[in-house]
Structure formats: C-alpha cells, structure tokens
Computed example of a mutant assay.
Amino acid sequence: MEITFDAANPQALAGFWSELVGDGVELTFVLNDAPKIEKNPIHLDLASTSAQDQVAIVELAEKLGAQRIDIGQGDVPWVVLCDPEGNEFCVLEPRPEYMDTGSVAAVVIDVPDPVAAARATGHPVARTGDGFASLRVGPGPWLEFLHTDDPPPLTERVRVTWA
C-alpha cells in the first residue's frame, strides 16, 4: 500500500512523517502548492502500545510541528492532530487488533458505503461494524472504510494505491 500526499514542501513533510512513523509504510510526497481547503477524506491512524506510549507519540508529533485539532470527534480515547501542512491523523489508544501493524495502525478512507467500498477492493472483508468495514492483506496497516455523509472532496490531496 502506498499513500501519496500533496505537499507545498514535500521534503519537509517527508521529514516530519519519517521522524514520526519511521519506514513501516510507504509514504510519498509530491509538490502541490495549492492550499488545503477541506478535511482530507483519507487519513492515517497511528498505533500505540500503552497509554504512556500514546502520550509519547502525541508529544513527539507536537514537537515535530503537529497540532491538536477538533473535527467534531467529541469525547474519544484517541487524539486528533494535523501535520505541519494540515493533513489530519489520529493517535489511537492501545487496541489489540493493531498490536502487530507497526507504527501505522490503519489507513482510513471516508466513504458513503463502507462495506461496498471494502468489497470493491477485491480482498476479503475482515471486519464490519457500525459505520465501518476493514480489510488487511499481509503485514502492515489495516485499510478501513468509515461511513460519512460528507460530499465528495473538491481536491484529492491524499491518495492510496493498493497493489
């Protein structure tokens, strides 16, 4: 799985993510200086192994230039942040299903119909629940589809290539 981010400063953004998650997932950064104008329909969820680890990841992200943001998540056990160019991501509380994923627990894609989107990949759907569907092929992060009623984005600043 390859995740591609548009970035005004690809080298700096690559440095941020490299420091934060290491080399566990392939992230590509391409030059695009158009301003970010809306929430990305694709984001990364980072795994943690304990409450202390979650705090340490959030602190590192903030030290590297991330900021906490409110996207309407309410009172949840995960922390929502954005990277230095405004790309949203979450640092999850410890969850058993993400203990063997590496630093990136999941690539999350907002869609109107999560089950249909997961099935359209051609891979077996591993989990479904209230408003989500997940699959995983091999080691690494889960690919998760999350229900949204948001309109389709005006821009595609983050893209996933599934090989």
Rank of each mutant, 00 (worst) to 15 (best):
T128D: 05
E93N: 15
E26P: 00
T121H: 02
L31G: 09
E93F: 15
D70H: 06
L143C: 09
V30L: 08
E26S: 14
L46I: 11
R119I: 11
N87T: 10
V158K: 01
C82I: 06
A116S: 13
D100N: 15
G86R: 04
L81G: 06
P141C: 07
D33A: 14
R127K: 12
V107I: 15
E88L: 10
V80M: 14
L44Q: 10
A34K: 13
L46Y: 08
E93A: 15
G15H: 14
A120K: 06
I37T: 15
P96F: 04
L81C: 07
A117F: 03
F29S: 02
L154H: 05
K39M: 03
V125K: 14
G22A: 12
A120I: 09
T121Y: 01
A61N: 07
V137M: 09
R68I: 07
F89K: 02
E2W: 06
S18I: 00
A163L: 04
A12H: 11
S103G: 12
C82W: 00
F132V: 01
A56G: 01
L143V: 15
P151N: 04
A47G: 04
N40L: 01
G129K: 14
W17P: 02
P151H: 07
P84W: 07
G86E: 01
L154I: 06
A34S: 11
N9I: 08
A118Y: 02
E38C: 06
D113I: 09
G65A: 04
L64Q: 03
E85D: 10
L20Y: 06
S48K: 13
P139N: 12
A66I: 03
S50V: 09
